[in-house]
């Protein structure tokens, strides 16, 4: 089904051997060991190529515009976030916006049960001792993101990747494909709620602990700006209530 989309991506990526690792509604994600312009020095170094294919049901010209706009929107969010204090996101390697292609730094590594996403890491019994500091760090980073007026839009435990800094794991936020700029408490509260639900559904047994650590980190990330934190919290409770009502209605 996706074969022709893979072929289309390859037609924009002459001489770049790519392997498909994920396909969503908006984009195809490939990895490659070929850098677009640097002679690769490290053996086994990988890069991410994100391709937004055209959508058949849209008018071609409008579609081309939208593809370009979404690709650039994601790239610009990453540009703003990369290097910001206390925030970690992949760096941009190259942008071919007209073809809907974004080249990014590859984040993470293999761990026992797959890639080093927060999702996989929380399944590893042996790493329990790290969970508290890690979840606090995730909360702290999300707070800083929100303080910059940026909302992730799809905060799942797969979109929080872990990177090894010395002997410590540190979070790195990936996939800003649904991200946007907003200063509305509602948008930030929903962002948090989405992550809470993701943790609840993938790690139900300890989710209460996990979420409280996350919130403590989120609070700390606001630093002196506790007023803003309280506003988001207040709305967050409303969002939870709405969520509960919705699930009661089935």
């Amino acid at each position: 089904m996706s074969d022709h989309l893979v072929e289309l991506a390859k037609s924009h990526l002459t001489n770049i051997p790519v392997s498909l690792i994920s396909q969503g509604a908006e984009s195809l994600i490939f990895t490659t060991t070929t850098h677009p312009y640097m002679e690769t020095s490290d053996e086994g170094q990988q890069y991410i190529v994100k391709f937004r294919p055209p959508k058949k049901y849209r008018h071609p010209q409008l579609d081309a515009q939208l593809t370009k706009r979404r690709t650039l929107a994601e790239a610009r969010l990453l540009q703003r976030l990369y290097g910001a204090d206390g925030i970690s996101v992949p760096s941009i390697i190259a942008v071919d916006a007209r073809n809907g292609i974004l080249w990014l730094e590859y984040i993470g590594q293999q761990i026992e049960n797959g890639v080093s996403s927060l999702k996989n890491y929380l399944w590893l019994e042996d790493s329990k001792a790290d969970y508290e500091s890690l979840l606090r760090a995730v909360g702290d980073m999300i707070a800083r993101l929100h303080q910059m007026g940026i909302v992730h839009g799809d905060l799942t435990t797969s979109n929080v990747m872990l990177q090894k800094h010395g002997s410590q794991w540190a979070p790195c936020l990936i996939d800003f494909g649904l991200g946007f700029t907003s200063d509305l408490v509602e948008d930030k509260a929903v962002d948090l709620y989405v992550l809470e639900r993701a943790i609840l559904s993938t790690h139900p047994v300890h989710s209460d602990n996990y979420n409280s650590w996350l919130m403590e980190g989120y609070k700390k990330g606001y630093g002196k700006d506790q007023g803003k934190f309280k506003q988001v919290m207040k709305r967050y409770e409303d969002v939870r209530m709405r969520g509960r009502k919705r699930s009661m209605l089935g």
């Binding site: 790239a75 990369y82 290097g83 942008v95 916006a97 730094e105």
Partner: peptide, 15 residues
């Protein structure tokens, strides 16, 4: 970090 930020600026110029 600086070099990566420069790359982003180059890749995104005027788009």
């Amino acid at each position: 970090v600086l070099s990566h930020q420069i790359v982003a600026a180059i890749q995104l110029r005027g788009l």
